[in-house]
Amino acid sequence: MDFWPYLLLASLEGAVMAAVLALTALGLSLVFGVMRVVNVAHGEFFMLGAVLAWWFSSVSTQWFGISPALAFTVAFIMSPLVTAAVALVADRLVLKRLNYQPEATIVATIGILYIIQQLALTFYGPDARPVVAPFSYRVQLPWFGYSGYKLFVIAAAVFLLGLVWFLLSRTRAGLLMRATQQDYETAQAFGIPVSRVYAGVFAFGAMLAAMAAVLIVPIQQAHYLMGLDPLLLSFIVVIIGGLGSLRGTLIAALLIGMSDGIISVFFSPTLAKILATTLVAMVLVFRPQGLFGDRPQ
């Protein structure tokens, strides 16, 4: 294949990855930014989103006989909501009782990771199951064919990211989140229900991961071990972008996603991973607060 079409393919693949990664990592970054909780179970919320998407779409096609497109819509609405509910319960039952202490919550979320993963294994099983894409349109470019659904994933993710930005910067809920993020004691003094904001943010973070998973699950299959990769990549993105910095997260997701796509196409996927982790190490050594993080006080 010639250079330019090759580059186009690489960029398309990178853009799909960046789009999904941005959504997932944004959830992780938001939870850390507002709550100072390093959520190790974030990848499992991603997996839960995918597994529930399979469940909702297959149940709605089998029992109600609706079209794949409609079934996907049902999954896209219901799966993130249920995932958010699970996160809410985890917050109330575990994180709140630990008073959100950073060390304790790391260990607790590792526990939550295993609980969710093993529950998925028990009730969903060890198989990888496909979710039918809402439409199967194949875009024939002069040099190669490309999945129309993948282009839709990029567009949908950009739209959702815009929605999150609007929510955070233009609504009252966003204002409460930002106030809590800046200084939770002062926020509390001003009558902001910090505990409820925490619960809401944790649920919202999980919901973002689940949304990303529902988008990706017609491309990859839902599998109980699928949470590990998004977790690692989200951590890479959040560390490079700066913990808690949403702008940094977006830019880092774009950087990691695109470079992973392009480097894996032109060289090898292993090299892409090597470079990403080297970048993390470099950032940690020379700019520990991340590229866009606030300087430590």
């Binding site: 393919l9 693949e13 990855m17 796509g261 894996s264 196409v265 996927p269 292993t270």
Partner: peptide, 13 residues
């Protein structure tokens, strides 16, 4: 292809 790979499109070119 690495055994844990989940996306393959990039290999086909």
């Amino acid at each position: 292809i690495p055994p844990t790979e989940t996306s393959f499109f990039k290999y086909f070119p």
